[in-house]
């Protein structure tokens, strides 16, 4: 019996990148501890979603930004191997530099044209202190930056929604507001599961027609009342 034609088969890579604010203000009222906890607690749910779809290889990494930006987890790791190391806070909010770092990794190569649309999750409690527009431009110049599923989480009432909305780049999706640890956990879990699931098996979309989301994003789960708001 002849062998199957063609060479090595592989599931399609899905890059999931946390882009986390570690500026000094994130140390206030336990925000950074809550973020570390929320991401760590979401990992088992993320792994479960990845296990449900063997045709997508979920690869996770993280960028941290404060007075400068750096890769907190630089190598794309399979979600089964991904462990969360706590973020530490200091300094300002180099959000633009963080987007620049992500843009460099979304170039082809190292990306390939057979990837699934990447998922980028930007989390911040403030406003950029560097050239945010330059970073966003660099990201959007990359074909995979434009095609990425871009989600933003605003922590606390002082978070500036304007840059987060520009990052999302679509009026149908607004930044998710987290004013307490429970809301943050809920939002982190939502992007780790519902958004990841949608991105890992996207149907084709007709391009060039009136704008729709590249990947349909499910409606976020509603939160409880704001009585417990602390941020």
């Amino acid at each position: 019996m002849p062998k199957r034609p063609g060479s090595e088969l592989a599931s399609r890579p899905l890059h999931f990148i946390w882009i986390a604010d570690c500026s000094g203000s994130m140390s206030v009222d336990g925000k950074i501890q809550s973020l570390n906890t929320a991401i760590r607690e979401a990992l088992p749910h993320m792994r479960a979603v990845a296990d449900e779809n063997p045709n997508a290889e979920v690869l996770v990494r993280a960028v941290a930004f404060a007075s400068s930006a750096h890769w907190h987890v630089s190598q794309p790791l399979r979600v089964a191997d991904f462990q969360w190391t706590d973020l530490q806070t200091e300094g300002l909010t180099a959000m633009g530099e963080a987007l620049n770092l992500v843009a460099q990794q979304l170039r082809m190569p190292p990306m390939t044209d057979r990837a699934l649309p990447p998922v980028l999750v930007l989390i911040s409690d403030g406003q950029p202190t560097d050239d945010f527009a330059a970073g966003l431009d660099a990201l959007m110049r990359e074909p995979w930056g434009k095609k990425a599923v871009r989600v933003a989480i605003a922590i606390g009432e002082d978070a500036d929604h304007e840059p987060l909305q520009r990052f999302i780049g679509h009026p149908e999706l607004q930044p998710l507001q987290a004013n307490n640890p429970e809301a943050l956990v809920r939002h982190i879990k939502w992007v780790s599961t519902a958004v990841l699931k949608s991105a890992s098996s996207p149907a084709s979309q007709a391009a060039g027609l009136p704008a729709g989301l590249n990947v349909p994003i499910p409606t976020p789960t509603a939160g409880p009342s704001s009585a417990a708001d602390v941020w």
Binding site: P117, K147, A203, A206, A207, L209, N214, V215
Partner: peptide, 22 residues
């Protein structure tokens, strides 16, 4: 040749108003 616009899950389509241009 490969069409660089066809990245990810977006594709040109018969349903576009003047799809023959694609």
């Amino acid at each position: 040749p490969a069409d660089p616009r066809l990245l990810g899950n977006e594709t040109t389509s018969l349903c576009a108003p003047e799809a023959w241009r694609e």
